[in-house]
Design a protein around this nucleic acid. Structure first.
Lengths: 220, 220
DNA sequence: TCTTAAGCGGAAGGACTCTCTCCGGATGGA
DNA sequence: TCCATCCGGAGAGAGTCCTTCCGCTTAAGA
């Protein structure tokens, strides 16, 4: 059941404990700061030396893959579930929403999904798994006449980028206001409507806006 | 008429020539790479030494302000003109579109508008000039019943962020496809509609999408 | 033409950042 | 008890970028 079960020799008890600490710290730090976080910060956060990190994970990418392979399974599962919603429109909305929410809660995940790791093979494969799922959701919604028919499968990722980036921009001012922009986008995606659907979340006030403008934009 | 007209002594002819070269190079390099571009790169691009850059502009921020104060005047003028459009909806659309287009063509401008320069006083002031203009456009459009009434003045900047960021994401794959997402957003902003309005620009194909995912997200 | 203040290029300094290695000392476990 | 294993964290190495400095060159006025 331990992470090293399959490996040749079990680690010494203290080593295995530290390994788990490093993984937990990395999960937290990468989530908060994205993959640009340094291993020093992770080591400090885990309460171990940097050497200890490098003894378990030969380099940074090993740590990242160890963490995010499993995480991507969760992403695929979540989208699978969202798309299975009986209502095609709700299914698509919820797939988009949960993808964005997951990437906002975990900036490292965003970096992994949108290729900030260079082109690591395993991540590329996992990303490819998402496509058919989304395609299914898109087709179903177009056929049901609820999603605008000129919507393309390849529009899904750019929409995610739009919303995760705006979320990063407004995060400090109001961590939930991105949902407002999601609603606007969804109103733009539906086939027709007689009135705007409720935005659900209030707009920023001027002070919050200035706060948001004051910080640099999130890296693309 | 020269840029140093007001200063105490006119520069030597070669010095003035180099000054102009530096400004031109900075304009180009900042436009292409944003303010993160180094002064070394600008000097090289201008065909001068880094010392020459520093002789005219005591530090990086001086060069940036020298360039962008004038540029921001153009931005204000463009928005002023867009908002003055006889049709309130067209005016708002065109204000948003031209703001985005300007920031895409000039990444440095985006950095200046969205505060990547820290909080340099003069930029903050100029940014503030834009608000009443946008407010006028928004009010007019809401009163005319074309813009959804729950739209707020402070939504304007986040929408810009969304679209400039998605543009940066898809730039390498197709430099114009952001217009497609602008259309979707605008369809989300209007009060009512019977059918999707034409997106105008074709979606990416799968190859282009992969190309876009392959590069890191643009900085926020 | 001569003189000289002004200007020039670009190497180098300094202050960071981040990844990764190394080694003397500590310790789990048989 | 004993030693293979593991530890911390200093620091090497490679990179970035801003800025300074200095010996050489040149424009321009007398």
């Amino acid at each position: 059941m331990t992470a090293t079960e399959h490996s040749e020799k079990p680690l010494r008890a203290d080593a295995e404990r530290n390994r788990q600490r490093v993984l937990a710290a990395a999960r937290e730090v990468f989530a908060r700061r994205g993959l640009e976080a340094g291993l020093d910060e992770i080591a400090r956060h885990a309460g171990v030396g940097t050497g200890t990190v490098y003894r378990r994970f030969p380099d940074k990418i090993s740590l990242v893959t160890a963490l995010f392979e499993e995480r991507l399974d969760q992403v695929v599962a979540t989208v699978e579930q969202a798309v299975a919603h009986p209502d095609p429109w709700e299914g698509l909305c919820s797939a988009l929403e949960s993808l964005i929410a997951m990437q906002i809660e975990d900036r490292g995940l965003k970096d992994v999904i949108f290729g900030a790791v260079g082109d690591h093979e395993s991540f590329r494969e996992r990303r490819a798994e998402l496509l058919p799922l989304v395609q299914q959701g898109v087709c179903r919604a177009v056929e049901a006449g609820v999603l605008r028919p000129d919507f393309a499968l390849t529009d899904f990722a750019p929409l995610q980028v739009m919303l995760t980036q705006v979320a990063a921009f407004t995060e400090a001012a109001d961590p939930q206001v991105w949902r407002r922009y999601l609603r606007i986008v969804l109103d733009g995606l539906c086939t027709r409507r007689d009135a705007p659907s409720p935005l659900g979340h209030p707009a920023l006030d001027l002070l919050q806006l200035e706060q948001a403008c004051g910080r640099p934009l999130p890296p693309c």
